[in-house]
Nucleic acid binder design. Structure first.
Lengths: 221, 221
DNA sequence: GTCTAATTTTAAGGAAAACAAATTTAGTTT
DNA sequence: AAACTAAATTTGTTTTCCTTAAAATTAGAC
């Protein structure tokens, strides 16, 4: 079965949304994710349901079928492998690769993506710390949590950040945060939920906003 | 100015056709090249003329404008660089890369293609021997001629073959012909215009058909 | 120079994917 | 239960690219 780029983007969006909140995905949230209008989404959901890649109940929302999930995981796999290529081989910065990977993920060639995987040394994570599904669609489950949920005094290692927001990535670059960076929470400001951190045990504090601290995923150390 | 994949394919087709025969390109030949119908071509020619990338005179044919040629050359550049990547880095055979490169050539990112060029070491020719336009659209002129025009007794070096026909490439692989191979013409069969050749001075003759000999480009040695 | 055949263009319409506007539904409030 | 509201769907267009059928034009044959 073949899927257009538009169909693939819908499946990917539904996949990402169902990762975030474990229930049915709403039409509006898909429209939001894809920068389109709910009317367009309704249209497409009918098509995708006919192709048996989603379970669609009108006015109720959608979930992916097994078939749909495996299509979505292949797209995610391609997107993340291409990001690794762009950063490791072509020396892009991590904030520059998302847009190009959005195009590359739709290239159709089963054997190319397997060869690319080999060429890259079978990476397990992309440059933003997100796990890369293997060719069977198996993907590591991230046990990480947002920095926002950390406790004052504790130290954490950055394992992942949102890859779709270049502005965030540029900001993180500027303050010296990347995958693997160790952060210690030195204070939590109750007033605006911002967090004061110490980066890589340097002799300097950095204040990060609530919004930022929710988009940095960390694990305990 | 932005171009859709369809528009890019038309420009590339017109470019290739005007390379072959130095005059105006006909609607039918474009339809043929793109596996579509003449009516579709007429439609698209109007669009491309409005965008000032072709000189279009109804019923007369088209030529590329300077603008059009530079767009076409960029697509050719991308196609051929990706072919180098697929063969050199991902270890594809030369008969397997055309289709995938047809998709990759439409990826939009100026900086990616320049970085890819650097990553590949600024190659001058693709795996089929075709010259790669540089970033300014300069391209080496092939002085080669079809093997079919060779003279009995003379030796020639293979510099290029048609990249779009996988069956031809597989055949050439089988008989041991690739870019750089030295061929000596030992006989020309008048009856069916086939040619008897000796490959790399081995102790063995090989008969190649008219069709094959017209699609292998060689230079004198 | 006219006629016919081949080529090219126009016209009408279909599929995919988008949008706005109008309508329907689900869930909540009273 | 009726009414309301927010979300979702339907309807009707639009755009892009393609197709078939018909009309127009060019060019080669006589």
């Amino acid at each position: 079965m073949d899927f257009s780029s538009a169909e693939e983007n819908y499946l990917k969006a539904i996949y990402h949304l169902s990762e975030q909140q474990k229930e049915e995905v709403s039409t509006n949230s898909i429209a939001d994710e894809l920068q389109t209008k709910p009317a367009s989404v309704s249209d497409m959901l009918k098509k995708l349901a006919a192709k048996k890649v989603i379970n669609y109940v009108k006015y109720k929302g959608v979930t992916l079928t097994d078939k749909g999930r495996s299509v979505a995981l292949l797209i995610v796999r391609k997107h993340r492998l291409w990001e690794v290529f762009l950063v490791e081989k072509l020396k892009f910065n991590w904030d520059e690769v998302h847009e190009v990977a959005e195009q590359l993920e739709h290239i159709k060639s089963r054997s190319m993506i397997e060869r690319l995987d080999m060429f890259l040394g079978f990476p397990k994570f992309d440059p933003h710390g997100d796990p890369i599904p293997d060719k069977n669609g198996n993907i590591a489950v991230l046990t990480a949590k947002p920095l926002a949920e950390g406790i004052t005094g504790n130290s954490y290692k950055v394992v992942s950040v949102s890859d779709s927001d270049a502005a965030l990535l540029q900001y993180l670059d500027k303050v010296g945060i990347s995958i693997g960076t160790v952060l210690q929470i030195t204070d939590k400001i109750v007033y605006d939920s911002s967090i004061e951190i110490n980066i890589d045990n340097q002799n300097r504090q950095q204040l990060v906003s609530k919004m930022v601290s929710e988009n940095i995923l960390v694990v305990d150390i």
